[in-house]
Write a protein that binds this DNA or RNA. Sequence first.
DNA 1: CGCAGGGTCTGAAACGTGTCAACCCTCCCC
DNA 2: GGGGAGGGTTGACACGTTTCAGACCCTGCG
Lengths: 367, 367
Amino acid sequence: MATANIREVAHRAGVSVSTVSNVLNRPLTVAPATRQRVLAAIEELGYVRNDSARQLRAGRSRTIAIVVMDIGNPFFTDVVRGAERAAEERGAMVIVCNSGDSSERERRHLELLEEQRVQGILITPLHDGVAPARDGRESPLAQIIERGTPVVLVDRESGRHNRCSVAVHDVLGGRLAGEHLVEQRHRRIAFVGGPFSIRQVAERHRGLSEAVAERGGPGAELSVFTTDALTAEAGRTAGEEIAALPAAQRPTAVFCANDLLALGVLQVMTMHELAVPRDMAIVGYDDIEFAGSAAVPLSSIRQPRAQLGRAAAQLLLEEIYAGAEHQHRNVVFKPELVVRRSSSEPHRRRLAGRPGPRQAMGPRTEE
Amino acid sequence: MATANIREVAHRAGVSVSTVSNVLNRPLTVAPATRQRVLAAIEELGYVRNDSARQLRAGRSRTIAIVVMDIGNPFFTDVVRGAERAAEERGAMVIVCNSGDSSERERRHLELLEEQRVQGILITPLHDGVAPARDGRESPLAQIIERGTPVVLVDRESGRHNRCSVAVHDVLGGRLAGEHLVEQRHRRIAFVGGPFSIRQVAERHRGLSEAVAERGGPGAELSVFTTDALTAEAGRTAGEEIAALPAAQRPTAVFCANDLLALGVLQVMTMHELAVPRDMAIVGYDDIEFAGSAAVPLSSIRQPRAQLGRAAAQLLLEEIYAGAEHQHRNVVFKPELVVRRSSSEPHRRRLAGRPGPRQAMGPRTEE
DNA sequence: CGCAGGGTCTGAAACGTGTCAACCCTCCCC
DNA sequence: GGGGAGGGTTGACACGTTTCAGACCCTGCG
């Protein structure tokens, strides 16, 4: 039952242990006949290399890890795919860890990954993660970086400069949404999202509020509906609140911190027979695959997700191979507004002299 | 930069290596004062246990792996979550590998996992995976099982009896959809799905066709639109084909092999101004979260996904701990029909004397 | 006072692999 | 014929940990 080891292979092939190791790692230095005998022995015994011993000797593993906040969020799946592709090009394998919105799990994963001496870690930490906790101890993540494991922050900007990060400019995303809604002549605009402790939520809100303040004109009002999660369920809750308002106070446009929220809001509006976009325009964030297939195709801010993952993995691999010469970089991608029916009445006359914003039907396949 | 090892810790604390090891593994056998000194040294040096060495000594790791076909498919995310929860209860960590519909990647992942001596593997193999290939060699997965790594098949029934499996009864799922559509008086029914080499696709089709043959009456016809993938994109392609048919030949109901396909079909129908469900009823499969939020809320076959993952992990852990005494089991869950608007005209008169099938609004949260 | 026994601590031996210097042998060239 | 080059192979050690059989000391009891 216990798997054969290299010694048994050597014995069976009538060679030394070193020769077997050579066959596995530098086949060209071994005479063809010997090589054949060794390979045959490996086959017959069902020998499988023991990676623990290998790593122990080598000092590190050949895998990189990506730790995501929520594997159920479609945003991360594209990031993972992009990262996998970049890693594959360099012969590295990616393992995915799901912290599932639990910092306890995140901590355990990080601990395990460091003990396993993974080559590097891509992570979207739950709580910006790199700031020291109140008791003055550094966060687990900061300690890991301190001790030398390369880490690239995904979808987070790194305040300090001892690490790489890739992110999408969230303030700009909120701004794009705000400008779009203001252009559509909306004056009562709502933001749906939360908790605000999530940096993205805060920044998207900030972008929106800047746009409304600067471009909305005198009568523009911005209200906020705080949610306790970024889920469709939370969106439905917020939607109910909004729908319950008297029509005169109700916002005419909603910008949601992500698409799941937006779908929840959209669903509730439909249930209450509030027409989208006539009675209520909706803009989401992330442009998930289903955004284009929603009850009313959903306008959304598209983030270059696969590119994000790919860039993150590339930075990580560069840091791994370049070592001390590596210069940390913070890459920021620009999001893009995708206008669909949920925020632009197709029958309404366009403003003269300006091409309307681009209309997209289905999601575009990345890359 | 190189992380401190146990020897340096021992030296700093003025004790032997064994004592440090004892502090880590059997703290009670070490005198409190010594223990404190050792812990302090660990802290000061930032010592992190080397899992490779640990595993090498122990012979196996403490993680189990789950290999999924497509991390972007929401079906798998719930399975992963269920598995994680069950593993967590036993103190095991789960790592996720995405084969991304590439058998090359699947192979490499399996190789790596076996080399890492993971405790066990949950896998939904791409090509039923356990049958020997044409050249007579056993598939990689079969070899892994042969050599003693516990494996539980997820969403696959194991033909042979040398492994556990958890699955959902797919023929029954197809049958539920078929009976439902036949009851709604549909006579021209289409199946959208593919490739048929995927067992689930074939079985869902079989269930549908059995139901139509047995209960559809004399005039019932079943047509098939084969897709090359289970994506919304493929669904749109099939939808275009269907919409292009003259109305007299066009099916009045479509059963899709999964929800992504169904959403694609639904979207195209809406674009072509074919009303759902009046002109075209649609039933999907999987009941993903967005099914309830689609253009027209989507009827679907719900699979107990989290339960599936949980049961799989439990079987795996049982096999790991029980060892030779373990009895392999094949657990089959029953799917459930969730009727929403896409397949039942709410204004149509109900058949007398029978309560209509249950109406569900939003997705129910699992567990 | 002697001895048993428990509480602490330690040295040495694994675990399975990769690496490296050293060795052997053959072949070629001078 | 001698010497050198180089291809092929090997033995020994190192990687960092756990484990196990003791060794040591101290206490309590006969």
